[in-house]
Design a protein around this nucleic acid. Structure first.
Lengths: 249, 249
DNA sequence: GCCTTTTGTTGATCTGCGTCAAAGCCCGGC
DNA sequence: GCCGGGCTTTGACGCAGATCAACAAAAGGC
């Protein structure tokens, strides 16, 4: 899910020779070595389903590159995205053997996985890992709660502005562009439908509100996916957040 | 927040002579002893605010008795409840010194608190505590995500049915009545307004939908708060959940 | 190149829920 | 007993967003 901590770790993770900094940012080298021994990689293509809710899940892991979504579906087909998995985000849950959500690769995805049983053993012997996981999970929880406010109380326009502003911020963090005053440019990693699933809207409403924000000069669009935000504070205003704190608590 | 694990721990917690089983269910006696040395109690009256979002927060703790709510507000007054704190639920976050949410006592509340600094020290020396906290936090995260589906995709009627069914289940668990086939009876611990804040609705809509469920025989009401559910599976049907899994993942 | 499929836009209409308003219920104070 | 304030219910009405539908614009496939 989107939050400061996972973002700040992301670049390290993809550079890190053993590719699991996210899990073990503070571990000593011998602990890293033990993690190293049980890890393996899996690749998924864009559009491919990584896990189905209810499936047996005998691994945990973290995203190395690409973007995946976490979502729930009702029998009648209504679906709600409950998380967006970015590089360094953790998937799976120690102590549970079935998946609670559908996980789908939005782009090509590489994951760094650990078989669950050895990982749990290792966690018992390595307090740092549980502490690191606790930190990450608390961040996820904050992000999920922040999103409950978006889903429960914001208007469609505010929802779109919230999503754009969160993606803009993520992008700025990933690319090490600090709080630049100038215009911000990024690509939307999601289809209109995926955005709708994240925001609890229909894809038509998403499209309409994006057009409206464009007409009002809050954003500029080239093609369908390339977004320019001339004035970030204006966008955050539209999102209805407090000027500074913003969406990341 | 509402979930199986916290529920199952609750009765033990209130019986436990040192009142922090929730945090340390698996600890050895000397670890319990160390926790014991840094704990203290705080009492709050119904309606009283326990913490304001943004306040400095120099303790963590767990609810011993009573019910409190966790919520976020926008500047214009719109508020969204993001969690319901029941006995044994944990409040506060190691590693952060300001509160992220408003916490309000719905009934009279007793909390068992630990000053943050000594608690964090203890956590570093006691791996069980971090592991236990991780488990609890993962449960909270699941509950929050489950609620995202409710907020984003369910109709008002389904939302009400979801809330009633979750409270009914909690009540059954607390009172050790298993999956009884017969009618289920409980008291609503929340005002219509608090329910609205939880469900992302207005209090009028909450009231109307409760009346509708009553008219349709899904529930019976005596007074405003005393609810009888003649057929639990019917209620869960109305909530739109899969028959078995239900809201607790 | 052309054809099919996926993705996105825009319009017309419908409806669920919010908003505004009035009145009923229940409890506690005096 | 009466009164006042918090909570709840119910009605009338309007609007934001869903739904249904048509079309445009990219993206592959061959």
């Amino acid at each position: 899910m989107l939050n400061e901590r996972s973002l700040s770790v992301a670049p390290d993770c993809s550079d890190c020779p053993i590719r699991h900094r996210a899990v073990c940012a503070r571990c000593e080298s011998d602990e890293l070595e033990r993690l190293e021994q049980i890890k393996y990689y899996r690749k998924f293509e864009a559009g491919q389903s990584i896990i189905w809710a209810g499936d047996r899940m005998d691994f945990v892991g973290s995203v190395v590159s690409g973007i995946a979504t976490l979502s729930q579906a009702m029998e009648d087909g209504r679906t709600q995205m409950v998380g967006l998995l970015l590089p360094s985000d953790f998937v799976g849950r120690p102590g549970r053997n079935t998946a609670a959500y559908d996980v789908v690769a939005t782009t090509d995805v590489v994951m760094c996985c650990f078989r669950r049983a050895p990982f749990e053993d290792l966690m018992k012997r390595t307090p740092h890992i549980a502490q690191r996981l606790l930190e990450m999970t608390l961040d996820e929880l904050d992000a999920a709660r922040e999103w409950m406010l978006v889903l429960g109380r914001k208007t469609a326009r505010e929802k779109i502005a919230s999503l754009l502003s969160i993606i803009a911020r993520r992008d700025a963090t990933l690319n090490k562009r600090g709080a630049a005053a100038g215009p911000i440019v990024f690509n939307l990693p999601l289809t209109r439908e995926a955005m709708a699933d994240y925001l609890g809207l229909t894809l038509e409403t998403v499209s309409r509100q994006i057009s409206a924000l464009k007409k009002d000069g809050v954003i500029q669009l080239e093609g369908k996916r390339h977004v320019t935000v001339p004035d970030m504070s204006r966008l955050m205003d539209e999102a209805g957040d407090d000027a500074d704190g913003g969406l990341l608590v």
